[in-house]
Amino acid sequence: MTIAVIDYGMGNLHSVAKALEHVTHEHVVVTRDPRRIQGATRVVLPGQGAIRDCMGELERTELRGVVLELIANQSKPLLGVCVGQQMLLEHSEENDGIECLNFMPGKVRRFADNLRDASGERLKVPHMGWNRVVQRHAHPLWEGIEDGARFYFVHSYYVDAADDSSVFGTTEYGGVHAHVAVGRGSVFAVQFHPEKSAGDGLRLLENFVNWAP
């Protein structure tokens, strides 16, 4: 039993791997070897930074085809994290527009610069820190996690999925209801960082390890 964290040069790889090791006895490996990724029992697609760089590095390391095959075949559980969630959509507004992996219908949009909270206070972009996640639909990865639990975010762009049935969690920021947990079949992806989200983040990772879609 092996969990492969895809190493294409972008993302908080070793923090994700350490958090996974904390919740499972399964072997966790950070790798860019296509054979090890394809042979793993479950896979994590991380991401951090600009989406243009993430998509470019996925191409450069010749792992784009591996990821496309994984999400198309639905042969094993895959967890996307942060930009690893955004890459699953059709298109991102970041970097003057970037075509993504087109696994789910929808766009990645930028938070407006003039966001304000309920009291009229100006909100900063990027959206950084702890925020509540409302569970839109039930999912095995929410098991043992209260609706409205707080998770840790760092992002200026957010997913706006076109299919409501694929949206499993939302976060409100300045009146925007960002789709911060999406999924289809054996794929589940989150904008927040479970490896930085204390007990609830670890529980989500543990649920992923035990998930049998």
Rank of each mutant, 00 (worst) to 15 (best):
A189N: 05
V134Q: 10
G120Q: 04
R32A: 08
R203S: 12
G11E: 13
G201A: 14
L78W: 10
V180D: 06
S156H: 11
V190M: 11
Y158L: 13
N12L: 10
A178L: 05
I98Q: 15
N12T: 11
F111S: 05
A4C: 01
G120K: 04
H127L: 03
A198S: 15
D163P: 05
N12D: 13
E143F: 02
V108T: 01
A161C: 15
L78F: 09
G47K: 02
H14Y: 13
A50Y: 08
K18I: 07
G49Q: 04
N12I: 09
E94Y: 01
A161I: 12
I37G: 03
L89I: 06
V30G: 10
H91A: 00
K18M: 07
V83H: 13
F103C: 00
L68F: 12
D7E: 03
T41V: 03
T171F: 02
L89G: 08
A161E: 15
E21Y: 03
T61G: 00
G56V: 00
L89K: 11
D200H: 15
W130C: 01
E206Y: 02
R52G: 01
V66W: 15
A149Q: 08
E62L: 08
L141M: 09
D163F: 02
Y158G: 08
S156K: 13
N73G: 09
E94R: 00
Q85K: 06
V182P: 05
G185S: 05
S119C: 04
K76Y: 11
H177I: 02
N95P: 01
F153M: 06
C100Q: 08
V154P: 04
D200K: 10
M1L: 02
G174L: 12
T170Q: 15
L101S: 01
C82L: 08
R35Y: 13
E99G: 00
P140W: 06
A72D: 15
A19T: 05
H27N: 05
M104Y: 11
Y173L: 11
V182Y: 04
E94S: 00
G144E: 15
W130I: 01
F188H: 03
L89F: 15
Q191P: 04
A17E: 09
G65K: 05
Q74I: 12
L79Q: 06
N131F: 05
V67P: 14
R42K: 15
P77I: 14
R60I: 07
F208W: 09
L45T: 03
I98Y: 14
E172G: 12
L204F: 01
H25R: 07
Y8W: 10
C54V: 00
M1S: 10
L58H: 04
L89H: 14
A17G: 12
T24H: 02
S186G: 03
H139Q: 05
T61V: 06
N95H: 10
R150H: 13
S166R: 14
F111E: 07
D117H: 08
V29M: 14
D33R: 07
L58I: 03
L78Q: 09
L115E: 05
F153E: 02
K196G: 06
G11H: 10
A149T: 09
E59P: 00
E57Q: 07
F151I: 08
H177T: 13
